[in-house]
Each structure stands twice: as C-alpha cells, then as structure tokens.
C-alpha cells in the first residue's frame, strides 16, 4: 500500500526558494520569538514569506503575532491566510485552544497531512517554527523538506547548550546546512557559546541581551519589532543572511 501524500509534498514546496527551520535541541530558549521576528523582518524587507508553526502540541506563534478569528481558505488544498504580510499556517486553525496530545507517529502524520495539503505558492522564504528536541519533528523535516536550512537558537546556559551541541553535531553529520547560532537572553559576559559555535565551524550570529520589555510586546508586532530583541535580530538578519 502506498501513502499518496508523500509525493505531493515536494510539489507543494516547489515554488519556495528557501526554507529556514528555527530550531534548538532545548525548549524555552526563544525559538518562536526568533522565528516570528525573522519572518516579519523578511516580509518587511519586501520578500514573500510563509510561516509554519509545527510545534503542534505547544503552538505559541499565534500569540506572538496576535492572531485570532482567521481560517485558511479551501482552494484545491488549503491556502494559508495572510497575517501581517506572512502566509501563516498553524494547527490552531483546527485545534483552537484545546490541548492536542500527540505521540510521535501522530505528530508525523499531522505534519505530512499539512505539508501535503497546504498551498504556499511562490515564496522567497518559508520560516518554520520547530518544536524543541531531536526527535520526530527534526527527523521529519530532514526527511520531507530536503531544502531546509537550520537556524539554531540557544541561551547562554551550559545546560541548554549541552543539548544544542548534540543537535548541531547531528545536523553537521548529515551535511544539513546550518545557517548559524543565536545566543538569546544573554545576561553575562561569557563567550562560551560564541567560541563553541566557531569551533564547530558554525557562523555565530550574535547575542541578544535579555530584554525585560519583550513580554509586554507579545501580540503587538509593531512593538515587538521595536524592542531591543527585535532590533538585535534585524541587525543579524541584515548582516548574516545572504539574501541574494
């Protein structure tokens, strides 16, 4: 028996120039905020950007973007609605604010389903907000989205980097492009993450200082882009992503 969804996925992604998966081995390091600001900043620069939150059991990007009361359109598949200039896709269209307790195989099936039916059209960038960890989501993105590049987020904590390091090693071992490492919520002068990244031959994008005003900007994207966090990330995007 053949699952007909898989061959359709490459067709759905055909007109997307670059896919950036914002990831980390660890949770709570700011992936969703980085992914959201990355997507918004690229859209503001005039690029066609899609944003796909695949943290199906704990989605949060809709809160960051202040999304409510919208649904995708059905037209030979599912066309994501446009939110703040982004074609935005999330499980919340279907689960609402209910918990979605999914085991690994169920996560994979949901991801395959959404990749097979979502009609992104032509995009310069598809930004993926990944769930934490080195399990189903990472393995599925590696298996199903061959053009994915990874942007890795960590905090300054050695505990966070202990897992992030293994995550990077896995990507490098598989010859998957790693765009760089972002050190988020920086509170000390330690250059531990910077050195470790460079030792691995990974581009260190820079540090984002702990921003105590960030929480108040959640749900308000203009405010978010003007926080210290938003500005720092905007500078990194301008300097580190090859936009040609």
């Amino acid at each position: 028996m053949v699952d007909p969804r898989i061959p359709l996925i490459s067709e759905r992604l055909r007109e997307i120039r670059r896919v950036i998966a914002v990831s980390s081995g660890k949770g709570g390091v700011g992936k969703s905020l980085v992914a959201s600001v990355l997507a918004l900043t690229l859209a503001k620069k005039g690029y066609k950007v899609g944003f796909f939150d695949i943290d199906f059991t704990s989605p949060s990007s809709h809160v960051i973007l202040g999304v409510s009361n919208i649904q995708p359109e059905e037209k030979n598949g599912i066309v994501p609605p446009t939110v703040h200039g982004l074609k935005y896709m999330s499980i919340i269209y279907y689960a609402g604010d209910r918990a979605s307790p999914l085991r690994g195989a169920e996560f994979s099936n949901a991801l395959i389903e959404l990749l097979a039916v979502t009609v992104w059209g032509e995009l310069d960038f598809l930004i993926i907000d990944m769930p934490p960890g080195i399990s189903d989501a990472t393995l599925d993105v590696l298996r199903l989205i061959k053009k994915a590049e990874f942007l890795v987020v960590t905090t300054s904590s050695r505990l966070a980097f202990e897992t992030v390091r293994k995550f990077i090693d896995l990507l490098l071992e598989l010859n998957v492009p790693v765009l760089g490492v972002i050190e988020n919520m920086k509170m000390t002068n330690s250059d531990f993450i910077h050195k470790e990244s460079e030792e691995k031959g990974i581009k260190f994008w820079g540090e984002i200082p702990f921003d105590k005003n960030l929480e108040e900007s959640i749900g308000d994207i203009e405010r978010l882009l003007n926080t210290e966090f938003g500005k720092a990330l905007e500078r990194m995007i301008a300097e580190k992503i090859d936009l040609n």
Binding site: I91, Y94, R98, N109, A110
Partner: peptide, 10 residues
C-alpha cells in the same frame, strides 16, 4: 476532516 490527528483534541 482536515487533520485527522486533531481527533486527539476533541
């Protein structure tokens, strides 16, 4: 109908 795994939410 759209995402069968969502059955786990309902």
């Amino acid at each position: 109908h759209f995402v069968p795994e969502i059955a786990h939410a309902f």
